[in-house]
Design a protein around this nucleic acid. Sequence first.
RNA 1: CGCGGAGUAGAGCAGUGGUAGCUCAUCAGGCCCAUAACCUGGAGGUCGGAGUGUUCAAAUCCUCCCUCCGCAACCA
Length: 531
Amino acid sequence: MDKKRFYITTPIYYPSAKLHIGHAYCTTLTDIFARYKRLRGFECYFLTGADEHGQKIEKNAAAAGKSPQQFVDEIVEGFHKLWKLLDISNDDFIRTTQDRHVKVVQDIFSKMLAKGDIYLGKYKGWYCTPCESFWTDTQVGPDHICPDCGRPVQVAEEEAYFFKTQKYVDSLLKFYEENPKFLTPESRKNEMINTFIKPGLDDLCVSRTSFSWGIPIRENEKHVIYVWLDALTNYITALGYDSEHPELFNKFWQDPECETIHILGADITRFHAIYWPMFLESLGLRKPDRELIHGLLMMRNSKMSKSKGNVVDPYPLVERFGVDAVRYYLAREVTFGQDGSFTPEQFVERSNTDLANALGNLLNRTVSMINKYFGGVIPAYQGRLNSVDGELESVIQTSVKQYENLLDDLKITEAITAAMDIVNRANKYIDETTPWVLAKDPEKEKELASVMNHLATALFTAGMLLKPVLVTASDKLFAQLGLNPEEVSYEKVYDVTFLGGQTVNKGEQLSPRLDATIEVPFIQYLMAGNQ
RNA sequence: CGCGGAGUAGAGCAGUGGUAGCUCAUCAGGCCCAUAACCUGGAGGUCGGAGUGUUCAAAUCCUCCCUCCGCAACCA
């Protein structure tokens, strides 16, 4: 929290097919961090995008009878739609086919080549002649069969450029040591060292000649730049590195006052944790401050696959249940850093328990009582009339503090729990104070007023803490409390006395209860591949 | 010995040294402001197994074993 600016990214996703809920998970988490930082007054830049080159795109496009560009244009259109639907607040969207990226990547390649960090060598692999594809040892399996067509493969070689990893291994290890927070969870660092670095890191293949849908190498037009040198560099090309307009790059990458964070899934850890710092060092650039590695979402305890009927398309899910329910589920249900699973039952349960029963119902009953007992006007703060008032206030204050500490440390699941503690305590507070009893005794009016004021404050605070997650419900909550969502400031969470005087507006239910007997089968139907 | 993760109440999960927790389900009670919601309490776990391992103290650290899962150079 000591830096002023904040740069946060998702990986750029591969548009060979539609996005699934795993992509939505990653992007939603990133969006929540970005929104939180903005709420806290940081100048924040949030980047996502698409990694559009490669053989798979080339082949899928051909199979669809389209040009690769046409093919990715259509799929990327779907990315934009999904992010809009999920209310993702990215500041930019980079596509690796854009000029601003292509040119700079070519420059980067030239620089590394000139510096001697890239050299021309031979790539050896298993080659399937009919498919015109190279495969790795593990892809072909013990029987040496093409994973695509099932025919036998042959050992083959092609000319390729390689990045000299050995040159940077020592300084990478030193970097890990000097920056213990670079990789989260920390276990990932050990994994990188033990699995990849210790056994001896091979040089990284950074070009291919076996397909052409990629960024051509200026020095040798037969070659296109291969995956990671093309993909990882998006994080800086999007900011205008090496361009005529490097302002954003200077501000959000090179400036030590800016904290730079990559969010990524466990499956691409090594590229981000090993090669990316090496590339940056080769270019003489700063390395990112942190990389947050989240777990992968499994579907019913096995990896997503359509044949198993367990893929979830987030789009219809959001359309039916709303952006808040989906965002909340993703951020709350899966412990950050662990693999998680999506099940329809859990989704419905989480939405009902937390959003409908706890938060939505608390708002509903509070607003109803303020209407009934005080003509719709929230009574002014009355002080702490008794120990129960004091207890609620102290839960609010400690929850705010916990929430901030947790989110500053990017612990999202626990931070949400801290916010919900306020809601749960407030529900209990109603039972303890029994406002409907107080209302019958005119002498208890002040106590009743205090109860209503405290409840409104609890709701406001919880709503503010949850605002990065519940992007629409939080504003609805503020509006029901008679506040203008445009005008409420985060700083008010520290003040338990400021509410009072405004007129509540009882609106629609914040979050309706879902009927599991209807919604669970509905989600299952979606997961079976139906729309 | 490829690497890693997981095994905690009927189900799903938190919990990295200090009296076993949460959600759902279940049982009993309360309340009636509210979205059949809310509040209280009960029952239900020898925390995968083993160890005459470490420690004043272990779900948590150590050793071995069993089971499941993921990754293994373009699935976040």
